[in-house]
Design a protein around this nucleic acid. Structure first.
Length: 277
DNA sequence: CAAAGCTCCTGACCGC
DNA sequence: TGCGGTCAGGAGCTTT
């Protein structure tokens, strides 16, 4: 559920809250999320100082002292919260699905909660990031300069699948999930059913609208980021006014035609049959 | 290669 | 009120 803007907002909050802090203790409250925790997970993190938190696609990268990176993906329902130090003798009361607890040297707790456990955490050496199996096949970042019309045209040239699931493919462009894929296609006037290799002249405007929807959501997220404790992955959709997403049967914001709902690749697709060709 | 299907998981929601 | 069924979805993995 969290897409690039939500993950970026969480990243900013975490970086601000955690940079410079040291991890004193690591508690795993179960053995796995979507994948098992690495065997040396707790040991690798204990005693490490957090230098910064960055992002690649929808992954968060916690850069630690000794050239080690803790990688986290929020999946659908993953969220980090930072809790104030517990008073002496007071025991923290954890919620259902609090799976990972990092205690910092100043007593604060970083808590990772993930009801559906579609998230994951890994440990990786800094030099191995680029070739790590999670990162090796990732496409360009949509908001970086390498996401050009030339790049996208080539990437789509052999894809006959419908454009909508194609722009959600992390090997084509990263960070665009179901909501922003629906929105960007509406704003560009492209039918989600159009074969990816046939969108032709609409490639530059599609790039522009992907920029627009992602940047608007990041901006909206940033404006709400006053207190990190209230930022999460799931409730992180700051931009609640969607043109098509979740609006099946309701009138199109441009032409009043009812928004259609279909399924593509197992995902809900919403579009205006009149505005999107 | 591309493409499609399967799978993980829990909570919300709906109809009865 | 409780209960079964359905849906939501990121992305790695397997199969075609």
């Amino acid at each position: 559920m969290p897409e690039l803007p939500e993950v970026e907002t969480v990243r900013r909050g975490l970086d601000k809250a955690l940079a410079g802090a040291t991890i004193n203790k690591v508690e795993l409250r179960r053995e796995n999320l979507r994948t098992p925790f690495p065997k040396d997970f707790a040991k690798s993190l204990t005693g490490q100082k957090i230098k910064s938190v960055t992002r690649r696609a929808k992954y968060l990268l916690f850069h630690l002292d000794s050239d080690i990176i803790m990688v986290a993906h929020l999946g659908m329902t993953g969220r980090f919260t930072v809790a104030a130090p517990q008073g002496k003798g007071k025991k923290m009361e954890f919620l259902a699905h609090d799976h990972v607890v990092l205690t910092l040297d100043d007593g604060r707790l970083i808590i990772y909660n993930d009801a559906r456990r579609f998230g994951l955490m890994e440990i990786c050496k800094r030099k191995e990031v680029e070739n790590h199996k999670l990162f090796r096949h990732l496409a360009p970042e949509p908001l970086e300069s390498e996401f050009t019309p030339e790049y996208l045209e080539k990437a789509l040239s052999k894809r006959k699948t419908p454009i909508k699931p194609t722009i959600m493919d992390q090997e084509i462009v990263v960070g665009v999930g179901n909501i922003y894929a629906n929105e960007a296609l509406f704003l560009t006037g492209i039918s989600p059913l159009k074969p990816a290799n046939e969108i032709g002249k609409k490639i530059p405007p599609l790039i522009k609208e992907i920029h627009n929807v992602l940047n608007a959501a990041i901006e909206a997220g940033g404006s709400t980021l006053k207190d990190f404790a209230h930022v999460s992955g799931e409730s992180g959709y700051f931009q609640h006014k969607f043109h098509v997403y979740g609006r099946g049967g309701k009138p199109c914001s441009k032409c009043k035609t009812p928004i259609e709902t279909i399924r593509q690749a197992g995902r809900a697709t919403f579009y205006c049959p009149k505005c999107q060709k």
